[in-house]
């Protein structure tokens, strides 16, 4: 028996919107402490890791660990039928080949349930070790989205370089080049507007902008984004979900030929 009631249902809608274009289908792993998902895109270049902890739910019941394979496009279609203020409940029964999403309006005058077929998914799980990163940049998520969108109109790849001077995003394309430098800026009115650079060693890496732009679909989940880089590791782009968990995107770098 599985029953999870999320008062802030819009959060689940936002999570799905942030990952459904990167990953077609995925296993949702439910346990008593919360639920998680890990899935690579079809080219094995990017990976999404989602965690939503049980504490963030108004009601959370998971009698035994269970994994449910869901098509994220279909799940997104169903969650789009929930209002932004709706309470969303996910229900499942042991051995069933369906999952039910229940949507309740805040005034309880409209209650809908949508039953979705589950699917068998051969998931390839990767072990992601804890790592010490050379540089960690925390910045406003909207600023990061703006930079990725702007650079993608000039080139296909972005070089992200972190030095003690700041973080530089560079691209080049047929029409020319672009460089955007952000300096550490902690003298802001609101902490979420700060750019904070933690650097142990300078690092410079190249990534495909197409993926970075896909990750920025998670912008509505968090005011800030954290970018962690080490030369011998995929970059981690993390959007924290307040009080509940995170959506992390891992992206393999491009290497010099």
């Amino acid at each position: 028996m599985l029953e999870l009631r999320l008062v802030q249902g819009s959060l689940l809608k936002k999570v799905l919107e942030s990952i459904k274009d990167l990953v077609n289908d995925a296993n949702f792993d439910f346990s008593s402490s919360g639920f998680s998902l890990q899935s690579m895109d079809s080219s094995h270049v990017a990976l999404v890791a989602l965690l939503l902890k049980s504490e963030g739910f108004e009601h959370y019941r998971c009698d035994r660990n269970t994994s449910m394979g869901m098509n994220l496009g279909n799940m997104s279609k169903m969650l789009k039928c929930a209002g932004n203020d709706d309470i969303i409940t996910i229900k499942g029964d042991d051995g069933s080949d369906t999952v039910t999403f229940m949507f309740e309006s805040p005034t309880q005058d409209k209650i809908a349930d949508f039953e979705m077929k589950l699917m068998d998914i051969d998931s390839e799980h990767l072990g992601i070790p804890e790592a010490e990163y050379h540089a960690i940049v925390k910045m406003p998520s909207a600023e990061f989205a703006r930079i990725c969108k702007d650079l993608a109109s000039i080139g296909d790849t972005v070089v992200i370089s972190v030095t003690k001077e700041g973080v530089k995003f560079s691209t080049r394309g047929d029409i020319g080049t672009a460089n955007i430098v952000l300096r550490q800026n902690t003298t802001v009115d609101k902490p979420e507007d700060a750019t904070v650079i933690e650097m142990n060693e300078p690092v410079s890496m190249t990534f495909a902008l197409r993926y970075m732009n896909s990750f920025t679909k998670a912008t509505p989940l968090s005011n800030t984004v954290t970018i962690s880089m080490s030369p011998d590791l995929p970059v981690v782009v993390e959007y924290k979900i307040a009080e509940m968990g995170y959506v992390r995107f891992y992206l393999a770098p491009k290497m010099e030929e």
């Binding site: 094995h44 990976l47 799980h125 990767l126 296909d156 790849t157 190249t206 891992y250």
Partner: peptide, 14 residues
């Protein structure tokens, strides 16, 4: 512009 690497180079399959 460099060759694209893949994640299984960096992370092992479980």
């Amino acid at each position: 512009l460099g060759s694209q690497t893949v994640l299984p180079i960096y992370f092992r399959h479980l």
